[in-house]
């Protein structure tokens, strides 16, 4: 296969991965929380967008915010239920609860949307661009642009605004943040709502690339995990770079070795890194 074509695929895939991981990056950086339901929230975002576009006849640009709103609601409800666990920093229970939420979301989505595969078609995904012997779609361009914008805005908000500062305070020391007058509960709820919106946006943009199934979501969790850990847990810039690197790796591995094992291979790379440098992936509070 053509090297340049794989490069293009890798870049698109990389931005898609970074976009999928961003909600979790913030979640980890700000709240020290993990969300094993992330993949199922991605699935839900994809299906809500699909439902809006192909069943309700909404324009794609309307279906996206709708999906994001549903994501916000799901994230909010999740965190509302877990709030006591979060305040106690009971990570063990939180992990299991989010896993349970993912499972419930899967059941609910299958019940509502059915278990057959669907194609999410958007005005961009069907328009191809041929450039020399390179091929991509307008959807691919949209993914890259939105990912770059999203990361830039997020980095600005976290580093330079009051909201970002509050989040970083809670990340470093929730008790001390209370003494600075910060409503810690609200920050936790907000962060989870953001996670919901971010993953829904990612799904609305990335899911048109492949058929969607209510049973999907596991690969997305693994990808997110690899991106977040390799990028330096909680680091926004790191996640972007790691996402891009992982996208390129997956594209070339898929093209030259085996597409079925691409995720497994990415994971193997991560394991290797973790074994060699378990402490090297420092947590950077506040999601810098």
């Amino acid at each position: 296969m053509n090297f340049t074509q794989q490069l293009v695929n890798g870049i698109v895939l990389g931005h898609a991965y970074a976009l999928i991981a961003i909600g979790w990056t913030v979640l980890l950086g700000v709240a020290r929380l993990v969300n094993f339901g992330h993949g199922q929230m991605y699935m839900l975002g994809a299906f809500v967008t699909w439902y809006g576009v192909s069943r309700l006849g909404l324009p794609y640009f309307v279906a996206i915010p709708v999906a994001m709103l549903v994501g916000v609601a799901v994230g909010y409800v999740m965190q509302r239920v877990m709030l006591q666990l979060t305040l106690k920093q009971d990570l063990v229970s939180i992990m299991i609860v989010t896993l349970g939420f993912g499972y419930v979301l899967h059941g609910a989505a299958a019940l509502f949307f059915g278990s057959t595969g669907q194609i999410l078609e958007t005005p961009f995904s069907t328009k191809d661009i041929y450039w020399g012997d390179l091929w991509f779609t307008y959807q691919d361009i949209a993914i890259v642009i939105v990912a770059i914008l999203f990361f830039a805005v997020l980095k600005y908000v976290i580093d330079r605004t009051r909201i970002g500062r509050l989040a970083r305070m809670v990340a470093e020391d929730p008790q001390l943040a209370q003494l600075a007058g910060v409503n810690v509960r609200r920050v936790y709820l907000g962060v989870f709502a953001f996670e919901g919106a971010a993953v829904a946006l990612a799904a609305a943009l990335v899911a048109p690339r492949t058929p969607i199934l209510t049973s999907m979501g596991f690969d997305e969790v693994i990808i997110t995990f690899v991106v977040v850990v390799l990028g330096g847990i909680g680091s926004v810039t790191g996640s972007y770079v790691a996402g891009l690197a992982l996208g390129l790796f997956t594209a070339f591995f898929g093209a030259f070795v085996s597409p079925a094992y691409a995720t497994a291979a990415a994971f193997a790379v991560l394991i290797a890194v973790l074994v060699v440098r378990p402490g090297g992936l420092a947590v950077s509070p506040g999601g810098r």
């Binding site: 006591q84 609860v97 939420f101 499972y103 059941g107 299958a110």
Partner: peptide, 16 residues
């Protein structure tokens, strides 16, 4: 699917 929702909810509610 409903059984899935039940099982997941039991897990969530117990822990929370």
């Amino acid at each position: 699917y409903v059984d899935k929702i039940i099982l997941g909810s039991v897990l969530i509610l117990t822990l929370a």
